[in-house]
């Protein structure tokens, strides 16, 4: 465990806590894409199946369980909470996520380390995570009224994967045999998807204004 990886994980954790805080404190999920949240839940379920058959560390297990629990908690609020669900931007959040899930699954069947059920699902989760933010980015571009918590949420999520890239570089040079092309290329694509967002996020932050994405 290095500092880049740990900071990345903490950003990931905080991003989720920011959303939960927003939902619980304001009783509103305005600006949050349920599609993205559901994709992340699917990502976590497919990736953390190994909770059932392998153990890495207490840290690892606690984080995995936390990610799973919070993902489903957010979905529960957005779908079923009497107050919160009325604030969901149903008409705007129309991204057809089948167009993300299907290609990622086919790609996982074709490009993987080992053709076994858990390995293919794990690979699928890596590919899907890379693009899972897209419905959220599209929603933000549509609504044009992005509150600070939502902006910070996306920034933390983008920062998490960017720090993982630094962590991979670090590990490549400090650990023998540390090579993982599937994760690296997916992670690079995932981070690149945020580039545009970060450009406008930085501008808004510097000028102390509310984030606005061009239509």
């Amino acid at each position: 465990m290095n500092l880049f990886r740990l900071t990345g994980d903490m950003m990931h954790l905080f991003s989720i806590l920011v959303i939960l805080l927003k939902i619980r404190a304001t009783k509103s999920c305005r600006g949050i894409s349920l599609k993205t949240q559901e994709l992340y839940a699917l990502v976590f379920v497919c990736r953390y199946l190994d909770l059932l058959y392998s153990f890495v560390s207490v840290y690892n297990s606690v984080m995995k369980v936390t990610f799973l629990a919070t993902a489903f908690s957010i979905i529960r609020y957005m779908r079923y909470d009497k107050v919160v669900r009325q604030t969901y931007d149903r008409e705007q959040d129309t991204f057809r996520y089948g167009f993300l899930v299907a290609p990622c699954f086919v790609l996982a069947l074709l490009i993987n380390h080992k053709f076994t059920l858990t390995e293919v699902l794990w690979t699928f989760s890596i590919y899907l995570e890379a693009v899972a933010i897209l419905p959220q980015l599209v929603l933000m571009q549509r609504t044009q009224n992005i509150d600070n918590l939502t902006a910070h949420y996306v920034a933390l999520l983008g920062g998490y994967r960017a720090l993982y890239i630094v962590n991979w570089v670090y590990r490549y040079f400090t650990e023998r045999h540390y090579k993982q092309w599937i994760v690296w290329i997916s992670g690079l694509i995932q981070t690149a998807i945020y580039a545009d967002f970060f450009y406008f996020y930085t501008i808004a932050w510097k000028s102390n204004k509310r984030l606005q994405l061009p239509a």
Partner: peptide
């Protein structure tokens, strides 16, 4: 895990 420790990441 022996496989380059990739699954110790989240």
């Amino acid at each position: 895990l022996s496989k380059s420790g990739r699954k110790d990441e989240l």
